[in-house]
């Protein structure tokens, strides 16, 4: 690789019937950074994530991960290559305990014996020690988000897509999560790509931000630039700016 892009999205278009959910979007993510993707409801953020992680094949365009075209590669292979993600609506493995759920991720790169070590390490990292034997079905939202993050970390990714990891959390839970994410990025060197609604989180976390509106990319830049970009204010921050 001559450039240090870990992820390149080129001219992606995804339609559902007549509805164009993502329209000709191109963006790059540099190895090691934390980037954000924001936009109003229905802007196509989650759809774009689904395309990148291989769940939906796009109509047009390419997804290049670590220099390889992964546009039509199935998700579990993409995961082996080093990309994992979390979901907007938490999708816990309801019938599993926390440690078992994390172990599913750990099997991505490790054999039966080694997984225990990975699970312990991740549990400690995400501060889930007290909950490790609880069933996922019995956990609250904040804990589930951490389990989901832990499960994805256990696959040992180089790039982690986080879909609205902060939604529904109270300020202290949010601060907690941001600390963990910063540590993930700094200590493990994992590139983070976050879709976020909670502005506090995006502004505090991301070095670069992409703005999506009605399926199209309308702006790119550092948080300060984005918050002053008139198109962004119009599309997304409108009400807030007036207030």
């Amino acid at each position: 690789m001559q450039n240090n892009f870990i992820l390149q999205v080129e001219n992606i278009t995804k339609k559902f019937g007549n509805l164009v959910a993502v329209n000709n979007v191109s963006l790059n993510v540099v190895q090691g950074e934390i980037v954000g993707l924001i936009g109003p409801n229905g802007a196509g953020k989650t759809t774009l994530f689904n395309v990148i992680s291989g769940l939906f094949p796009p109509e047009r365009g390419r997804v290049i991960f670590k220099g390889k075209d992964v546009t039509r590669v199935v998700p579990h292979v993409i995961c082996k290559m080093g990309m994992s993600r979390t979901f907007q609506v938490t999708r816990a493995f309801a019938s599993m305990s926390v440690e078992d759920a994390i172990r599913v991720g750990a099997y991505n790169r490790h054999t039966n014996k080694e997984t225990l070590e990975i699970v312990n390490e991740v549990i400690q990292f995400c501060d889930l020690g007290k909950l490790r034997r609880r069933k996922c079905a019995d956990l609250g939202l904040a804990a589930l988000r951490r389990v989901e993050l832990a499960r994805a970390l256990a696959t040992e990714p180089d790039l982690l897509l986080l879909d609205e990891a902060g939604a529904g959390l109270n300020p202290s839970e949010l601060g907690n999560l941001m600390d963990i994410l910063k540590e993930v990025n700094r200590e493990k060197g994992i590139t983070l790509f976050v879709v976020e609604h909670v502005m506090q989180m995006v502004m505090g976390l991301c070095q670069r931000i992409f703005v999506l509106d009605a399926g199209e990319l309308i702006a790119t830049g550092a948080p300060e630039e984005i918050s002053q970009n008139p198109r962004v204010i119009e599309a997304y921050l409108g009400k807030r700016a007036i207030r």
């Binding site: 992680s53 291989g54 769940l55 199935v74 998700p75 579990h76 993409i78 995961c79 082996k80 994992s84 993600r85 979901f87 999708r91 816990a92 493995f93 309801a94 019938s95 599993m96 078992d100 759920a101 599913v104 991720g105 099997y107 991505n108 499960r151 994805a152 256990a154 696959t155």
Partner: peptide, 15 residues
């Protein structure tokens, strides 16, 4: 067990 609970979530974890 993971895919029995949620296929997509299992798939992105390498299953």
């Amino acid at each position: 067990i993971a895919l029995g609970d949620d296929e997509d979530a299992a798939e992105v974890l390498g299953v």
